[in-house]
Structure formats: C-alpha cells, structure tokens
Design a binder for these strands. Sequence first.
DNA 1: AATGAATGAGTCTTCATTCAT
DNA 2: CATGAATGAAGACTCATTCAT
Lengths: 198, 198, 198, 198
Amino acid sequence: MTEPTTLDSKDTILDAAQELIAQYGFAGFSIRDLSRESGLAKGTIYHHFQDKREIYHNVMERDLARISTRIQAAVAGVDDPVIWLHCFVRTFLQEAEERRSHIRSLVREMGAMEDGMLQIAKRVREQVGGRVASVIEAGIAQGRFRDIPPQIAVMSLIGALNTYIAWQLVVEDSIVDPGVADMIMDFFLHGLTKEENL
Amino acid sequence: MTEPTTLDSKDTILDAAQELIAQYGFAGFSIRDLSRESGLAKGTIYHHFQDKREIYHNVMERDLARISTRIQAAVAGVDDPVIWLHCFVRTFLQEAEERRSHIRSLVREMGAMEDGMLQIAKRVREQVGGRVASVIEAGIAQGRFRDIPPQIAVMSLIGALNTYIAWQLVVEDSIVDPGVADMIMDFFLHGLTKEENL
Amino acid sequence: MTEPTTLDSKDTILDAAQELIAQYGFAGFSIRDLSRESGLAKGTIYHHFQDKREIYHNVMERDLARISTRIQAAVAGVDDPVIWLHCFVRTFLQEAEERRSHIRSLVREMGAMEDGMLQIAKRVREQVGGRVASVIEAGIAQGRFRDIPPQIAVMSLIGALNTYIAWQLVVEDSIVDPGVADMIMDFFLHGLTKEENL
Amino acid sequence: MTEPTTLDSKDTILDAAQELIAQYGFAGFSIRDLSRESGLAKGTIYHHFQDKREIYHNVMERDLARISTRIQAAVAGVDDPVIWLHCFVRTFLQEAEERRSHIRSLVREMGAMEDGMLQIAKRVREQVGGRVASVIEAGIAQGRFRDIPPQIAVMSLIGALNTYIAWQLVVEDSIVDPGVADMIMDFFLHGLTKEENL
DNA sequence: AATGAATGAGTCTTCATTCAT
DNA sequence: CATGAATGAAGACTCATTCAT
C-alpha cells in the first residue's frame, strides 16, 4: 500500500505550486522554482503532471473544491437568505485570509489565460457566484429583496469582497478586520442612499 | 520639423507595450514581442528605457494620467453627488471599454508587483478612489447618503465595476452594455433590500 | 558502467573552457563558444555550473591543483635547495609548455578579477610561491644562500619564468628551449655581477 | 584656432579609455562605459576613432611613448651601467605606481591580441627591453657584468619588476615600497648564492 | 565637432520539457 | 516512483557601430 506516497508527492507539488502561483502568477513562476520549493526533482514533477498548465489546472481545481466545500459547510442548513449571505461573506473573507492565493490568482491571470484555464475561472465564477445568485433569487422570490438582476447583485458583492481583499491583503499586507464583513454586508443590503431620501 | 521623432518612438513603444501588458501581463510579455509589435529594434527600446520594469512603470503612469484626466473632465462642474457618481461610473466603464489594459493590469499583477509598481497601484487607488470618497463624504454631509465609512462604499462601487469589467470584457470578451452602468448605480445607491423590509 | 557521464560532462566543459579562457580571457570567451567547443548545449552547461564565473573558478582551481601536484611530484625527496630549484624551474616551464592556459590566464585577468577570483590567484601565489620561499629559507639557514628577503628571490624567479613564458610562448609562439631553464637558474643563483667585481 | 578642442576631446577619451582598459581589459570595457566615463556621446567617440581597436591602439601607443620618454629622461646622461639600471628600476616602479594601467594591460591581453596589437606589445618589449639589454651589453663589454645572454638578464629584471607590480599593486592593492627597488636591484646584480660558495 | 536615435547580432542566463536510468 | 543529465528555444539585456542632424 504505497498509494499514499503518490498522493503525498502530488500534493506536495501542488502546495508549493499554489504558493508560487499566488506570488508570481502563472507566467511568473518556473518549474525550477517549483522543484526547489517542493524539494522534488523536475523529472518527478513531470512524472506527476504533463504540463505547467496541468499543474495550474490542478491547483485551481483543488482550490476551487476547497473553497466550495468551505462555503457549503458554512452555509449548510441556513435558510434565511440574509443570514446565508452573512455566512458567505464571513467565510469568503476568512478563506482569503487563510490562503490568499486563490482569489488573487483568479483575479490576476485572466488576461493571459487560454481556453483551458478560462474554463476553470468561469467554473469558479459560476459555482461560487451561482450559489450566491440562487440565494438572492430565493430572497427576491420571498419578496425580501428587490427585483434586481441577480448578476448585478452578485457582482457587487463579490466585487466588493475581492476589492477589499486586494486592497487590504495584497497592497497593505494588513490583516482582515472581521468587522468589515458586517459593514460590507450592511452596505450590500441597504446601499448608499439614506432611507428618508428614497 | 521632424523633431517629435523622439517622443514618437517612446510613445510607439509604450503603445505597443500597453497592448501587450494588457494581454499577457508583466511577466508574460517579452521584449522581443514588444520589438516586433512596435516595429522598433530591441536596441532602440533599451535606448529609450532602462528596463522592462521601466516600461511597465511608464505605461502605468501614462494610463493613470489619462484615466484621471478623463474622469476629471467627465465630472467637472457636477455638484450633485448622485449625478457625479453616475458620470463617474459611465466614464469608468467607457474608458475600460476603449482601452482595456489599465484596469485589467492593475487588477492582475498585484501579487507579483514589487515596491515601485505597488506605489503606482496605490496612487491609482488613492487618486481615483480618493475622488470618489470625497464626493461620497460630501453626500453624507448633505444628509443624502447614509453615514457609512466612505471606504466601504468606494470599495463596493469600484469592486462592482472592476468585477463587471473582468467578467464581461475579459472572460466573455463581450461589449459593455451601457444599461449596466445604470443598474450598477441603482444597486449601489439602494442595495439589495426591498424598501418595505427596512 | 556509464556512471562517469556526469564527471565527463563537467570535465568536457572545463576542458573546453580552459582552452577558450587561455585564448580569449574571461571577458573574451562566450558561453556560446563554450557550447560549440564542448559539444554540449548551453542549457547543459548551466546545468553543471551556476555561472560563467563558476566555470572560471573551476578551471582555475583544477589547474591550480594540477600544477601543484606536478611540481610537488617533481620535487619530492629532493633535499638540496639548488637541485630543488632546478627541478622546480624545469617543471614549471615544462608545465607551461604543455598547457599554456593557467599561467597566462593568471597573469592576464588580474585587473578585472573580482574577489572570488583574486582569492584563487592569491592561493596560487601562496601555494607555489610559498613552497619556493621555504626552500630558499632553508638554503639561507644552511648558509648557502645570501640572507635576502625570500619574497624578493621568489618574485625574481617566478617573474623571470613568467616573463619568459609570456615572451616566448605567447608572443613568439615558439617552443620552450630546455637550455633556457638552466640559464635562468644560473642567473637566478649568481646575478649579473662578475665575481671579481664583488 | 579651435584645434586644441579636438586634441582635448581625443585626449579626454583616451584618458578614460586608459583607465577602463586598465580595469577591465580590452574585451571587458565597453564603448558605453567609455562614453559615460569620458562624458562624451558615443557618436563623438566614433567621430574621433574608427574602432574600439583603434582606441586601444592609441592608448597603448600613447602610454608607450610616455613610459619611454619617462625612462629616457630618468636615465639621460648616466654612463655607469649599474647606476643606469638603478635609475631604470626606480623609474619603472614609480611609473607603475602613478598609472598602473600600462604594464598591467600589456601583461594581460596578450593571449587575445590580434596582430595589430601584438605589434605594439612587441614594440614595447623591444623598445624598453632593448634599451636595458644594450646597457647590460655595455656592462659586459666593460667587464663589469658576467658574459650572459642579455635577454636572460632583461627577462629576469623586467619579470621581477612586473611580478612585484602585479603582486603588490594589483593583488594586494598596497603601495609600492621604495626600498624594494634597491632590493630587487641588489638581487638582480648578485643573485641568490652566497659569495663564499661561488 | 558633437549628438543621440537606431540597429541587429551577440551577451549571459532561464525556460519548459524529454529521457535514460 | 524518482532522478538528474540534457536540450534548444526563448528570456532580458548589451554590444560595437552607423547615420541624420
């Protein structure tokens, strides 16, 4: 039963790759770096993966699966759309704080991505975004949310979150303030305008 | 009067670089490509710029100046905060449609950026974001906007815009729908919650 | 038993490098030449050595080891200082004839050398020169040589040899005349002055 | 009479070139460096000299002329061969201390030199060495020096001097000790052997 | 006399990838 | 499963040199 060894190596590689991709992007990281960082020979890397691209794919897929699972778990059994969204936002930001790579990478490479990769990016968007959208749709159906194209709402929410992450984590390198999650949610729910001016 | 030759060459290079950076990112574009695309020899490029990095800097700076001017012009003389924001959003999206490079690049390279570049990214954020923030502050002072940390509002707006651009332009490669500007603004102003539930 | 392949490749590279360095100096030889001359791809060269400089270092070190061993062997078991010096001179010139690179290179690059290389040059001087110096000291102690700073003597001897090599081998490209070794030694032992004028 | 301007520029270039060649050798210095160091544009350099090689030639020739003149002046009117040699040695070392470039360069590039340059190197050797040789011949004729091939003596002397310069100036970067001139001369005149052992 | 823009071959070095072991 | 030797195309950047002004 030497099976776990294989799995270990693959995961070792993906772990190192994830870190490097997060730091340097797809074009900016090299197999040599990956070999050094993972402690495995270049040959070994190519034994487990066909391509640099395949490594990228795998990192993305794995990350996607993780974040999906994470969010799903956090949100499981929650029926109320508002509470659901609260949970989502908190988990999203927490996740970002713990491993910064994924969201950053997704946001980044988009221009240079060729088809294969774009598919993954789209799947993330669809998977994560789709879940959010359906909750919003539910809220609209329940008459609690305004009848607005859910896409717009999703974009606004994820955009705010990503921008917050990009600004706070990447640029400032500061730590995520948990209070912000609530402020973002509040703003997301009520917008800018003062009620009396509605 | 062939004097502007110098200026022309530098600009020719920057124009080509802008296009390439927009497509492939900093790490992903090569001087060789730049040479081919600009029609100038590699030596010539290095005659005008010290570094690949210097080229990047210049592209960013130039773009920053352009977009700033653009927005400033669009917004000049507008006093009403809501109208101001409308103008801003429209110009921001228009600008993105016309030359896609800047916002995309900014959003992208962040992880791999070293200090010099980050400074520029920060300046964009401060310059563009700061302007928006002050308008929002004005709106709050006038009692028209809710008393909310302007940063949160700015993040939400710019995040929504960036995400829209990233999703629509980069991934879908589709054209910006002018109606979206209004929808984003509407959402930004009123949020998700139905009024009767306030 | 094709194990020595590694060693072979490294040595193949160093052999070619030695030849090229001897001909063109450090700055004057190119990795491309080295690749052509060694029959190995540029990538392979960089697989075995980090740097152009590291190649240089290795060539020097290897040569230093060789010449040291050579001289040591030639001089082994010789007690009489005069005979010792005779052996040394002959071996030194012979060595120079067989592989011209080392002495020439050493003599040459000195101005452009950075620390790492200078250390090697110093070691040669100390190793080879030191041995000669100690023999001269022994001769002085035995009362056979004049009580003169050994450094001066060493310098004069090695200077004469190097100059001879430079003039005869490099400029004239002629072959070393074995008689010269004796003439140099004679001059080294007795100097210019006629005895009756002492 | 704007003639001196020309001369000035040429000399400015040669001065800078001399310094650079002394430091980096022929292959190791670049026209760009020369342009920066001399404060003149690359075009200007090529206005005055056809080639990198021509610059090298000129530096060498000029230096050769200088050192020749220097030595000639120092030795002028001296009849006694021993005193002549003393003056020569002192001047040679002084010269080396003042501008280190010439001797070093000569000693260095030899391997990489093509014909044109070698001719100069040979001329130096013949001019400087020849003068020394003829004084030694005179001494032999006067019965004061041993009847030894003058070449051997010249080689020993210039070799000792060069080696001293290389070791002290280049490697140690220390200052020339004037006492050494006398010690070298003493050794040159009397050799290593103690008189009573003759 | 002097400039600086322009060039393309050439510099060292890194790349992703293959393959025999 | 794992290695490290090997590759050649591509990377950023420098070179000596030309030429219009």
